[in-house]
Amino acid sequence: MTELNRRNTTILLLILWSITPLIWQLYTSFCSPEALISPFENIAKRWTLDNYRQVFQADPPFWRYLVNSSLVGIYTTFITLLISIPAAYSLVKLPRRIANVSKLVLTSVALFPYVLLFLALLEFARSLNLGNNLLALSIPYSGLSLPLAILLISSAIKDLPADLEEAAKIDGLNLWQRFRWILVPLIAPACASTAIIVFLFSWNEYPIALTWISKDELLTLPVAIARLAGSSVYSVPYGAYAAATVIGSIPLIIIMIIFQKQIVSGLTQGAVKG
C-alpha cells in the first residue's frame, strides 16, 4: 500500500468509527418492530415513522425537553460570560504571582470530577428551594463552567496588546466604556468559543439535572433520555428510544457544523493555555 492509500484508509476507518453508531441509531429509529429484531433479514414492512409519532405524542411531548435544555443552556452561557469576562480581566491585571496561583487553582478545579458534588448541590437546592427551576439549575452549571471560561477568556485578554487599553484610557474611556467598546469586541471570538463549550456542557449535563429536577415537564434532555433507558433494560421496542436520541442529537449536530471553528479553537486554547 502506498502511503497515501494507507492514510485514506485510516481516515475512512476514523469516519466509520465515529459515525457508525450514530447511523445505526438513525437506521433503528425508522425501523418497524419486526425489522428491529432481525436487522439483517428480508422483511416486507421494514420502514416506519411510528417511532417518531410515538415520541412526539408522548406526554409531555419530546420537544419540551429540547426547549428545557436550550433554556438552561442559554441561561448558563449568559451567566457564565457575565461573570467570567470581568473576572478574566482582573486576573490579567493582578500581580503575576497571584495570577499564577489563581490559574493553578482554576485549572485543578476545572479538572475536578464534578459528579462528586451532586449531593451537596442537592442540599443547596433543597434548603434554598431551588429544585424544579430551570433558571436555578443554571447557577451550579455556571459555577462548574466558570474555571474553564475564566482561563479561556483571560488568555484571550492577555494576548491583546496592552497599548490598546492604554490608548483607550488616554482617549478618556472609563472601565465600563473600555469593556463595551474595546475589550469585549476584541475578545468576541474567544467569548464565542467559550459560550459554545459552556452551552454544550450544560446541554449534556446529567447528574445535577437528575437530582434538581423531578417534574416531568421540566426535565432536560439527558435526564429524559436516561428515564427512557431506565424503564427496562431488556425491553425490545427500542425504535422509540432511537427516535428520541436522533431528535436529541440533531440540534447538537447543527451546532457542531455551524460553530466547528469556535469549538475547535476553544478546546485547543483550553489545552494549550491550561
Binding site: 496588546p161 497599548d163 490598546l164 492604554e166 490608548a167 483607550a168 488616554i170 467598546w181 474595546i182 469586541p185 476584541l186
Partner: peptide, 12 residues
C-alpha cells in the same frame, strides 16, 4: 494626546 509606538489603533 499620545501617539504610541505601536500606534495602538483599535483593530476592530
Amino acid at each position: 494626546g499620545m501617539v504610541f509606538q505601536s500606534y495602538a489603533l483599535y483593530p476592530h
